[in-house]
Amino acid sequence: MSISMPMPASAATPARTARTLIEIDRLNLYYGDFHALKNVSLDIPERAVTAFIGPSGCGKSTLLRSLNRMNDLIPGTRIEGRIAIAGTDIYSPEVDVETLRKKVGMVFQQPNPFPKSIYDNVAYGPRLHGIRKKSRLDEIVESSLKAAALWDEVKDHLKRSALSLSGGQQQRLCIARALAVEPDILLMDEATSALDPISTLKIEELVQQLKDRYTIVMVTHNMHQAARVSNQTVFFLNGEVVESADTEQLFAGPSDSRTEDYISGRFG
């Protein structure tokens, strides 16, 4: 598969030796009897894009969903080990899961706007957290839609149903909705896999803009995407981290033969 897409300029710059924001230390996760994550240790740098790649069922989405504790919603999930964000263990009892999810936003595989107006979708999060004032909400909606590169397309019909937007617009609306609660981290779970190439490109460009302000962790099935947009790439196989390295380094010269087999298309 060869895709000739303009390579966003900023992706070519090597990962800055940034501060680690998320530390994962010997994490084990079980769904009932199924051992989904095996002894995963990983550092995720601040204000950079980290991509998780690997075949289906390798645990990359599971790890992503552990970072904002969405796995808590799945009955029978058991977790051992430690995930610390800015030094705080997010599974410790004093951490409030609602506050955590406010700080760690998430965008899903399928665009999932609420069947409400565009405005109400973006204002949903701020309203949850107690913002009532119309003028303040207006500001947040505008700045979030601008940050998600959707403002120019929708500014004249904010009252229109979010479901009237195209798939790519809906996904950018979901990004705007996540940004509206001012997160530090943005998790993207195969956020472009349901979109057409042009919408995908728009979202990739958006990710490049957002990484200056947010720490982005994305799961992708598309290795070209990981190569194009990420600074760090992590390769998963059967619930284990096989290799984690600077994206250029990982794709140019993987140190593990399994990584090489996967990125050269020998399996997966």
């Binding site: 919603l73 609602e98 406010k102 999932n112 999060g125 949850l128 609660v181």
Partner: peptide
Amino acid sequence: VPKSRRDASYALGANRWQTVSRAVLPS
């Protein structure tokens, strides 16, 4: 009501009742 709608609400930091009353019940 699709599960993805609940996920969207929880992921924004909603608690159970906020999710039920704002994301699930209207649908």
